[in-house]
Structures are given as C-alpha cells and as structure tokens.
Design a protein around this nucleic acid. Sequence first.
DNA 1: TTATAATTGAAAATGATTTTCACTAACGTG
DNA 2: CACGTTAGTGAAAATCATTTTCAATTATAA
Lengths: 138, 138
Amino acid sequence: MDIKNWLSQLQNHGYRLTDARRAVVEIIARSARALTPVEVYDAARSSHPALGLVTVYRTLEKLEELHLIQRVHQPSSCQAFISAGHGHEHLLLCMRCGQVAFFSGDDLDELTRVIAARTGYLIKEHWLQLFGLCANCQ
Amino acid sequence: MDIKNWLSQLQNHGYRLTDARRAVVEIIARSARALTPVEVYDAARSSHPALGLVTVYRTLEKLEELHLIQRVHQPSSCQAFISAGHGHEHLLLCMRCGQVAFFSGDDLDELTRVIAARTGYLIKEHWLQLFGLCANCQ
DNA sequence: TTATAATTGAAAATGATTTTCACTAACGTG
DNA sequence: CACGTTAGTGAAAATCATTTTCAATTATAA
C-alpha cells in the first residue's frame, strides 16, 4: 500500500493534505484498472461524499505531475489513469475486464536504434501498450 | 496519389461519392501530419466552402472503418487521424513539426511472446508509437 | 491561536462530439 | 435521359468532458 507514500510525496512538494485528496489517492492507488476522472469521482465519494469532480481533475493533474499515475489511451475511450509502474514500465490491458498488468520493455532499445538509423529521426520517447485477455477472461 | 483508390473503396462499400467526401479525402490522404477533425475541416473548406464539420466527422468514421486512416494518440492532444500505412505499420512522430514516418515493427512478436508467457495474458493487439525529432527539426 | 495562502465545490463557460431534422443530390432503374 | 428512392448534407440543438471563476473554507506555519 503506497497510499501513505503518495500522500507524503504530495506534501513534500508543497501541496496540502486534505480529505478530498486522501479520498482520490485511495481510489486510484488501489485500482488494478485504469479509471476515468468520473469513475474516480464516483468511487471516492463513498468515503468523502462532499467531493467535487473538479477536485478530482485537479488532484489527478498533480499526481501525474509527480509521476505517481500515468495516462492510458485506449482505441475507444481516450483518457483514463492508472498508478504508474515502478521505473519505466509498459501496460498490458485486458480487453474484457480492464485489468492492467505492467511489464518492462527493455527490448525496445534495439528496435528504436534500427528505426532511428532507417528514418533519420532522433528518437526521444516511445509509447507501447498491449491489449489482450487476462488469465481469468480467456 | 491514392485519392482515386480511396474514393473507389468508399464506393465499393456502398457509400456515395459526394463533393464533401472528395474534399475530406483529398486533405487527409495527402497529409504527412496527423490532423484533427477541425484541421481537416478548415483545410477542406478551401476546395468546398459549404462543408460542415459534422460531415468531416462522419467521413473520418467511414475512412477509419475501411482502414484507410488510423487514429493517433499523443501525450497531450488526443484524437487525430493520419493515413494508414500499408499493412501493419507503426508511427514515428516528430515532436516539433508533427511529420509522421511509418515503420514496421515485426520485431515485436518476440516481445509479446515473452510477455504473454510471463503474465498469462493472451495478447491480441499492440499499440506502439515513437516520438522524436525528424531530420529537419534536429 | 491566528493569519494567510492554498484548496474546495458550485455554477458558469468552454470545447469537442453527437443527434435531430428538413432539405438536397447521387445513382440505379425504367 | 428523367425519375424516384434513399443516402448524404449542413445548421442548430443536445450532450458530454473539461476548465475557469469565485466566494467560502481549511491546512499549516508562525
């Protein structure tokens, strides 16, 4: 459970600790699926009913800034968030239940080298996501 | 120039050939950058001023359905479209000018096999995009 | 305990996308 | 070629996600 850790990180960066933030952090830090802002909002209100959707947006913004969560793009729906893996990790999403697995894709360095040479581009970042069915959903 | 080809494909699938569609197809088929619906709209009106934004959305929908264009997600802006490469190809985007290069990522098969074994997932699709600076922008 | 500056939630504003609808035009049929 | 059917059109309205504004509240340092 990194919740305490996430909260201290917020605090260490000069942000105040509030009930609204605690509620949002608890939901997103614990989730094994990528959640949209509205999903976080709905879930977090069970522990903090007065929560406003605007605050969810603002908190997610800060968590992303601290690299505690990352953005997930899917073919259909576009903006959702999930806890950031440790270090540089990629996502594998279950197409049926939404469960997310992390993996590290070190093996990409070779590919990017080849592509860089072939295209003349200087490659700075990459973005890889796999989609499939998790063990349960197969 | 695949414009004629794109138009016949639309026709072969039972869609009618209209000036609005011709205008949209000309813009997107020729573009070397990913374009948002509004960008297509603005560009296409120079040849067909009466064009409506709604029609752009509807035409892009059909072109995507026929796999003539593909969706591009970027860290910041989310929905844009670019001509689909031939066969299975990935994108390399210039972070400065937006230029897009295509490449084929055959080498991913091995990676997906390893990840599948490690996670127990059945992997169906992948989604890879590289970001960098093109030769001109470096 | 107090002062202050960050944070909050409601409401309004904005922006993107979709739906509705009456009108128009593509194209197969006669 | 004229015609009728039906897909396609654009304007306006509706919807949905996100951002901004603002007055009230509250965490935190002094």
